[in-house]
Amino acid sequence: MRFSGAEGRWREGLGSLRDVVRQELVTRQLAEHLPITPCRVLDVGSGQGTQALRMAARGHRVTALDASRELLDVLESGVQPGMRVRTVQAEAERLGELFEPGGFDAVLCHGVLMYFDDPGPLLAALAGMLAPGGMLSLLVRNGDALAMRPGLLGDWAGAQRGFDEAYYRNRIGVTARADRLADLTRRLAVTGLEVRQWYGVRVFTDVAPDGAPVPGDLEELLAVEERAGRTDPYRAVAALTHLVCHAGG
């Protein structure tokens, strides 16, 4: 996976405006779909553990898997008494070796698929982790709007490439891949997963500078981003697409 080695750049962005908007919106969107009763959650590519820790704080039993020891250390430092969190250092490709099929009620995979040239095997592995009726939360780079960021920043050559190409250079300096909603929906259907809802994440704030601080009117900003992320046509041009899928049964 191409993310390896970029942990330092990733950590530099934690707590910035773009990071806060992403994490807050995903949390709010997930809240509509997770059961109230405690369930078994697997967070694949958990990174620093923002979502894993929030799931554990709600009483869910969380397994967080990431290849980076550095980021898992950050996650573990945030575990509070009473939280049920297990961390596993391993590549996402090893899911089938590490866990029994059908062992989780919910699987999160946020910002991971973009680092795989062929998403098919990972999507199949994620689907295999779900119990019947389980939920997959998938956050990907929006391939339908890949020209938006460079276009808004005046990078016309980058915008031209975004219309036709699936690859781009991201903010942490890694070449990554974007997914188009229709194509990803078809790929998920092959694995037995149905997209029940999808959202946009970072419609208005994606072009904020690296390290931009959180403004004083954050709650107003989040309210606007949250509404745009569930409303057409705005959600279709967001930087990220958040899909909520369910397994058969």
Rank of each mutant, 00 (worst) to 15 (best):
F3V: 06
A6T: 09
G8H: 12
G8N: 13
W10E: 08
R11E: 09
E12R: 13
L14H: 10
G15D: 07
L17D: 02
L17C: 07
Q23Y: 06
L25D: 00
T27S: 15
T27H: 12
E32L: 14
H33T: 13
H33Q: 07
H33I: 10
I36N: 10
R40D: 11
R40V: 06
V44Q: 02
G47M: 00
Q48K: 03
G49C: 01
G49N: 03
Q51Y: 04
Q51C: 07
A52D: 00
A52F: 04
L53Y: 01
R54N: 13
A56M: 05
A56Y: 00
R58K: 15
G59W: 11
H60Y: 12
R61K: 14
R61I: 06
V62M: 04
T63M: 08
D66T: 10
S68K: 01
S68G: 04
R69T: 06
L72Q: 01
D73N: 07
V74T: 15
V74Y: 02
G78Y: 04
V79C: 10
V79S: 05
Q80G: 09
G82W: 09
V88K: 11
A90K: 11
G96T: 13
E97C: 11
E97N: 09
L98V: 08
L98G: 14
P101G: 09
G102Y: 09
G102M: 09
F104V: 04
F104Y: 08
D105N: 12
A106M: 10
A106P: 03
L108T: 02
V112I: 05
L113A: 03
L113V: 03
M114D: 01
D117H: 13
P121R: 09
P121K: 15
L122W: 00
L123F: 04
A124L: 13
A124F: 07
M129L: 13
L130H: 03
L136D: 01
L136S: 02
L136K: 01
V140Q: 00
N142A: 05
N142H: 06
N142Q: 06
G143F: 00
D144N: 14
A147R: 02
A147N: 04
A147V: 01
M148H: 12
G151C: 08
G151V: 09
G154P: 04
W156H: 13
Q160D: 14
Q160K: 13
Q160H: 12
Y167G: 01
Y167M: 05
Y167E: 14
I172Q: 03
T175A: 11
T175K: 10
A176G: 03
A176D: 02
D179C: 12
R180Q: 14
R180T: 05
L181E: 06
A182T: 12
A182C: 08
D183A: 14
L184E: 00
R186A: 11
R186V: 12
R187I: 05
V190Q: 12
E194P: 06
R196Q: 15
R196S: 15
Q197K: 15
W198A: 05
Y199E: 00
V203N: 01
F204Y: 11
F204L: 13
P209H: 08
G211N: 13
G211K: 09
G211I: 07
P213E: 07
V214W: 10
P215M: 07
L222E: 06
V224F: 13
A228P: 05
R230T: 14
T231E: 15
T231N: 13
D232C: 10
P233W: 11
Y234I: 03
V237R: 07
L240C: 02
T241C: 06
V244N: 01
C245N: 09
A247P: 07
G249A: 09
